[in-house]
């Protein structure tokens, strides 16, 4: 198996780089390495670099440099031997209140999996999750590592508005809604942390590669933390 990334044009102003064929921690580490390599390359004309599970989309300004020139520069950068070993990461605790109005679908998730609500919380909080990347909407983390014991299908009809900070399960994934938005995942709790703050730099609390752990808090703690951040 050839480990070097494969490049192709996704449009006349973007190049899609494929890195492996699966969703795994190994592939993720390579994506982080390639992302850092391109970010630090100083290649003129690059406008944005969007990592995902096993790919990176590089968008460029074709006025500043021709698409062929960008393609060739990226290709030679990525044909060299890439060091995949030195990926550093942070571990961040995300407090979550799994009670009442913050958790409208917790009972359904429990029923679907023949568990009690406490058992769902136990499974959801027991392990570390990896932030594969941010995408979809501002600050939204794609998380890996949810125990299959609490996997639950998405709602038949998505909600028109999921409140900011909602922690939810969709299929075998879990996620946090950084901003209020429509959504079809089952809401099992809410965090008082602000995951997206456009006025801050960086604007997102989480970043690719972070390991996170959910920590159960009471309603009182939730309200206290929420008022602290105002």
């Amino acid at each position: 198996m050839n480990d070097n990334p494969v490049l192709k044009f996704a449009s006349d102003r973007s190049i899609l780089i494929k890195i492996g064929n699966d969703i795994s921690v190994e592939t993720h580490s390579k994506v982080v390495s390639v992302f850092n390599l391109i970010s630090n390359s100083g290649i003129v004309g690059i406008q944005s670099i969007h990592p995902a599970y096993n790919s990176i989309l590089v968008s460029f300004n074709p006025v500043l440099k021709s698409s062929d020139a960008i393609f060739n520069e990226l290709n030679s950068l990525l044909s060299s031997t890439i060091d995949f070993t030195h990926v550093q990461y942070r571990t961040i605790e995300i407090p979550v209140c799994y009670q009442d109005e913050y958790a409208p679908d917790l009972a359904d998730v429990a029923r679907y999996n023949s568990l009690t609500a406490d058992e769902v919380i136990y499974h959801h909080t027991k392990q570390n999750y990896i932030v594969y990347f941010l995408g979809f909407s501002p600050g939204f983390p794609y998380l890996g590592g949810m125990p299959k014991e609490i996997a639950t299908p998405r709602l038949q009809t998505p909600r028109l508005k999921v409140p900011e900070g909602s922690v939810a399960i969709g299929g075998d994934q879990t996620g946090i809604y950084p901003v209020a938005s429509p959504g079809g995942w089952r809401i099992i709790g809410r965090t008082p942390l602000k995951l997206f703050s456009p006025e801050k730099n960086p604007p997102a609390l989480l970043q690719m590669g972070d390991r996170i752990k959910f920590l159960e808090i009471t309603k009182e703690q939730f309200k206290k933390e929420q008022s602290c951040r105002q």
Binding site: S11, S14, H50, A52, Y53, L57
Partner: peptide
């Protein structure tokens, strides 16, 4: 496909 970044005008 495995979720990936999308281009403007895709």
């Amino acid at each position: 496909i495995i979720t990936e970044g999308v281009s403007l005008g895709a």
